[in-house]
Amino acid sequence: MHLAPDTEETLEFAVALANTDPAASRSGSDEIGTVGQLAGFLVDWAYSGRIDHDAAELRDVLQTRDLIRRLWDLDVDDAVHAVNGMLAEAGALPQLARHDGSPWHLHATDPNAPLAQRIRVEVALAFVDVIRSGVVDRLRRCAADDCSGVLVDLSRNGSKRFCSVRCGNRMNMIAFRERAAEA
């Protein structure tokens, strides 16, 4: 599967953001539950533009995370409706941009727009590419029985099943123990 580099990067960001939710996080707690944790998370993703570092921004980003997590459970028609709604709500106007050493990519909001709005629009644009490319099946829930994490399978053969190596190793160990018990 091949998508534009900015689409892949945004999808990876969306997965990382979605998996900070307590139901999906490695720690079992909200990994961006404080303004400081959100700031640390954004450093890892080099998010550009306005960042307020306040409680209102955190609340909006947490709501955006919930919206993004729900996208993984929608069929194509419902995803189209949700994506179009995200773009319309923001008054998105896609345009090419290049900054901070990045190649040409799409932006559809002003860099001074609120962080949560910019996240929603960037994720919506990435979903536009996924839907248009017919690869919605590459957006999956983790196959681990006890995990509600999400993943995007960017592998060539489309065989990724787990949101992390940790989940894959845990499920492989469970399967190994079950086979050993039967033997």
Rank of each mutant, 00 (worst) to 15 (best):
H2W: 07
A39Q: 06
G158N: 04
T64K: 02
V15K: 05
S29M: 02
V165H: 11
R141P: 00
H81K: 14
R170W: 09
R50A: 11
G40H: 06
S159Q: 12
A181K: 15
A24M: 00
E89I: 09
F162I: 05
S133Y: 00
N172T: 14
A90D: 12
F41P: 03
A24C: 00
A181P: 00
L3R: 05
E12H: 10
V135Q: 02
S102I: 00
C163M: 04
E182A: 15
T64S: 14
S102G: 04
W45V: 10
C167I: 03
L106P: 00
N157C: 04
G28Q: 06
A18N: 09
W104R: 02
P114Y: 06
V80N: 12
F127Y: 03
V165R: 13
D66A: 13
A183L: 12
F162T: 01
W45F: 15
G28Y: 09
P111Y: 12
G49R: 02
G149N: 03
V150D: 02
D110E: 13
S148I: 00
I32S: 00
W104S: 13
G28I: 07
D129K: 02
R141G: 03
L106F: 08
M86E: 13
R50G: 00
V128T: 08
G168L: 05
A90Y: 14
Q37D: 14
C167Q: 04
E12F: 08
G101T: 12
M171V: 13
V128Q: 01
K160N: 07
A124C: 05
I51H: 11
R65V: 09
A14P: 04
A126H: 01
A183V: 14
D52N: 12
F13Q: 04
D54A: 01
L106C: 10
W45H: 15
Q117F: 02
S155E: 07
H53L: 09
V80P: 00
V135A: 01
H53Y: 09
P111V: 10
M1I: 07
R161K: 15
W104K: 00
Q63N: 10
A183P: 06
D110R: 11
G101F: 07
L17V: 08
L3G: 09
L106T: 11
A56V: 13
H81T: 15
G91K: 15
M171S: 13
R98L: 11
T109C: 12
A180D: 15
A4H: 08
L96S: 15
E12Y: 08
L42C: 10
A90T: 14
M86V: 12
A181S: 12
G36L: 06
A46F: 05
H99F: 14
D78F: 08
Q63D: 13
H105E: 14
N112V: 03
V128G: 01
D129A: 12
D21F: 05
C163F: 03
R138M: 06
T20R: 08
A144I: 02
A18W: 06
G168I: 02
R170D: 07
T34Q: 09
I131F: 04
V136N: 00
A18C: 10
H99Q: 15
L74V: 07
D21Q: 07
S48A: 13
C167K: 03
A92D: 13
A90S: 14
A24I: 00
D66V: 03
L42K: 08
A108V: 09
D30I: 09
